[in-house]
Design a protein around this nucleic acid. Structure first.
Lengths: 393, 393
DNA sequence: TCTCCTATCTGTACCGGTCCAGATCCGTGG
DNA sequence: CCACGGATCTGGACCGGTACAGATAGGAGA
């Protein structure tokens, strides 16, 4: 973790807004709760005119209470409530203040995947949790739209989080062009002024590979994602990974397997989805020389391997050892429980939130121009039931 | 589903923005890619001056290409690229246009829970998916903040989705006061001008109850959530539900159990969490007269009951039948697989997205003021392995 | 040749705030 | 009695666009 403590509080305080307690402000719509049909919009000026002060003073009544006397403030707030004024317009304030209180989130595989992929979901949960105290909202940006609206270009934000995206996207390019502070997670940054949060995948993958070697396995299959590529055996195990994460994991595995002279075969699958995984598992387990250990890109894939093994009458770990990745909930609920490489998603989310806060702080004029954060999140092997000694030949 | 087709496309087209393809626009920062330290900001006016046209024409070059000749537009775009102008400022545009392209999401149990609770996650995934084509971004609003920033009050949005929230919250009040179009999901609306998407829980729960009755069970436990209340046996099964969803389910169960004269006991748990569920399950299964069937608020709870039953040496469904709720992934992955009440989360998400689109459309000036949507999402019983005939006494 | 229409631009008036540099007024210390 | 500092309040400029009602000019139709 390379993060240093940072006083976000100061930024927040600066933007401080003190409103009267909402409960006391009376009903919506008018003095006696009638649902008035919006007549000419109520603005600061409306209230200023009614009270007989300048517009600025009304603004201060809401945004900088220390700038005017308590009584006058009371009068202004009362009049505002009376006129049904709900407080400074967020859009106008954004423009004037130059800050939006929003962090964009780009995730190429559609924002929906951020909820459906358990690993992504847990990560974002942690980010959301860590960011909540700052009051920043997380804005999930659809990467593309049928219409002409493009969120990455059109939504105001103070910074953006880019998670496991295809880099060469319109949305990505726009985020860059806008000059927003960016934090790349699980992905190579496309610009050097961006912060990064990366998983320390190689040692984790290496540990997994060492584990099966220690158990006596010599014929090992790698199940890797090759986003979009057709499933099948990869020509060269050493370069079978496609995409940052996949590549790192393959390199970690190979860093141990190659020197040990293990017999390695890599099987591609198109996406980290159940269907793809089952298909790839079938390919791997029906190879002429069946591997006795399978190292998988994810727990989801590992579970698919377990099920296919069963289908084929193979026992896990009796005939085949299986290692997952991520240590998702799945790895603990299925039978057998999965040996896997754990990544601390909570720490990763927290580190990301910090990186975002710091990136925003650094953006502010007059801020010391430090280097952007580069965080490496540790991984470690967790041995459970799905791995065992290689079967005697 | 009460939704009617709606032409969101029209709205999007109206707000159409046609930019030159980002790939062609040259590098960021300046004509030759240098990372220029922001000199006086480049605005429409800068370009207008340089090209020698009015600012409005430059605006049109970006936002309404049909309003000027192709050549002039080319010139303008070229000059813009040269000056490093990245396109109209989103915040300014928002203010001028009066629309933000963002939908707020309020979820009292912290935005993190939107990712962690599998049911919520799947629901939001579906909402995000259905909303993606419109280009609207989903903004997750932290309900409270330590600082003075309050997203529900300060983030510009075109509408807000309120999901299973505690109604009496500052955040909620602000959404109302702002007069935003609101869509309430799984929750009683607090205002009559809001749309609602509710689960048709009673028939589903009733079916679950009927199912165990049909299997001969006469002593039935209900495991309900009573947000925040201490765990334990509820004084009156009929009113054991706390919160909209919980209440509906209890009423559904009771609508069948009461007339049948079943012996019903309700056990409260504080929250829909694993720990609470295990505790409640222990209470239920160690009652002096042990129930032979347990109807649960969720699959998570049902699974907890299954595990506690095992701990106590009881077989499921031999000694105890267990019925879950929601038909989450869990209900299919655990052993035994769970009998449960299915809710179609994808349909629910889709209906919500529609309701949001329609609410936004209705908001636009001149739109026909129709009634807000009120959608009821169907439920149905799915019988699996966790229920069986009542044990002979 | 004259009129009218359409395609292109331009000007002005907002959109609804915030920032910052004064201007006032008042009590206080010298 | 007067300069001075702090607490209040005000004015104008600015944030960066968009909407809409003209103004202008070139070409079609009569």
């Amino acid at each position: 973790m390379t993060t240093r403590p940072i006083d976000v509080g100061a930024a927040v305080r600066r933007a401080a807004v003190t409103y009267p307690d909402v409960q006391e402000s009376g009903p919506v719509g008018g003095p006696d709760g009638r649902q008035e049909v919006t007549v000419a919009r109520v603005t600061l000026q409306t209230i200023a005119d009614k009270v007989g002060v300048s517009r600025m003073t009304v603004s201060n009544a809401f945004s900088r209470p220390d700038q005017l006397s308590a009584e006058l403030r009371e009068t202004i707030l009362a009049t505002a409530a009376e006129l049904g004024y709900v407080g400074p317009d967020p859009a106008a304030r954004q423009l004037a203040r130059g800050s939006s209180g929003t962090v964009g989130v780009l995730f190429t595989q559609s924002p929906a995947a951020a909820f459906r992929d358990p690993i992504a979901a847990e990560f974002f949960a942690s980010v959301a949790e860590s960011l909540a105290p700052t009051g920043l909202a997380l804005s999930l940006l659809p990467a593309a739209a049928d219409g002409d609206r493009l969120a990455a270009r059109d939504v105001p934000m103070d910074a953006a989080l880019v998670y496991a995206c295809v880099a060469d996207t319109h949305a990505m390019h726009w985020l860059e062009r806008r000059g927003l502070p960016l934090v790349f997670v699980d992905q190579d940054p496309t610009t050097d002024r961006a912060a990064t949060v990366l998983l320390d995948d190689r040692p984790g993958a290496a540990a997994a590979a060492q584990h099966v070697l220690d158990l006596g396995h010599r014929r090992v299959a790698l199940l890797t994602t090759a986003w979009g590529l057709p499933p099948g055996v990869a020509p060269d195990p050493a370069t079978a990974g496609v995409g940052h994460v996949s590549r790192e994991r393959v390199e970690g595995w190979m860093s141990v397997l190659r020197p040990a002279g293990a017999d390695v075969v890599a099987v591609h699958m198109s996406d980290n989805l159940e269907e793809d995984a089952l298909e790839a598992a079938r390919v791997a387990l029906t190879l002429p020389e069946r591997p006795t250990a399978v190292l998988c890109f994810s727990d989801l894939v590992a579970w698919a391997v377990v099920r296919v093994a069963r289908e084929l009458g193979l026992s896990v770990p009796g005939d085949v050892s299986v290692v997952g990745y991520d240590d998702s909930a799945l790895s603990r609920t299925v039978t057998p429980t999965l040996t896997t490489v754990r990544q601390d998603l909570v720490a990763k989310g927290r580190a990301t939130a910090r990186a975002i806060e710091r990136a925003i702080a650094a953006q502010r004029p007059g801020a010391p121009t430090g280097e952007p954060d580069h965080v490496l999140v540790p991984t470690r092997l967790v041995v459970r039931e799905s791995t065992g000694p290689a079967p005697a030949r």
